[in-house]
């Protein structure tokens, strides 16, 4: 799935992926249902302006996305996917200056479903910030990631 990594890198670099355009993202790896990203938040991602910890909404957004990336990286044939359910536990606050490590993996993919799990950690210390799991439907209507329409990646 090196095409997929290249595609993600291109989009992040171009800032063409909505919120990801505002984040400093490094792709550590993305293959066979496992994805690892490093992300540097900034002041705009803070929950409070006088207490700059990362807003949980950003953590959810990151986990939702990386779960989708993990599912796509596990597919032999490009297909459209859709998030069905997401459950996130926010374990502790983290300062926006901390670089974050976001990792996800596909734990099972029976039939048309794919189940994922993942977590957000402080990259420097490994401290767990949030963890979650997500369920996806694979092969939904609509365009898929791939050669026909790479813009359809989540």
């Amino acid at each position: 799935m090196s095409d997929f990594i290249n595609h993600l890198q291109e989009r992040f670099a171009q800032g063409s992926h909505g919120v990801f355009g505002t984040l400093d993202i490094e792709i550590n790896s993305a293959s066979c249902g496992q994805v690892s990203l490093a992300i540097q938040p900034d002041g705009w991602a803070a929950l409070h302006d006088d207490e700059p910890t990362v807003h949980s909404g950003l953590l959810t957004l990151l986990l939702d996305s990386i779960f989708g990336f993990a599912v796509i990286s596990s597919l032999e044939t490009p297909m459209a996917i859709a998030t069905i359910d997401l459950k996130i536990d926010f374990l502790r606050d983290v300062h926006v200056a901390e670089k974050l490590l976001v990792e996800a993996r596909v734990v099972d993919a029976p039939d048309i479903f794919a189940h994922t799990e993942g977590e957000v950690r402080v990259q420097k210390t490994g401290l767990l910030i949030a963890r979650g799991n997500g369920s996806f439907m694979v092969g939904t209507k609509g365009p898929s990631f791939g050669t026909t329409n790479p813009e359809a990646a989540p």
């Binding site: 909505g18 909404g57 957004l61 986990l63 939702d64 990646a153």
Partner: peptide, 22 residues
């Protein structure tokens, strides 16, 4: 900026969730 899938112009699921969290 809230578009998650530029081809079908859907909102990013994480944005929907973030709005609910806020």
């Amino acid at each position: 900026k809230n578009v998650g899938n530029p081809f079908i112009r859907s909102l990013h699921g994480g944005i929907v969730s973030a709005a609910l969290e806020c």
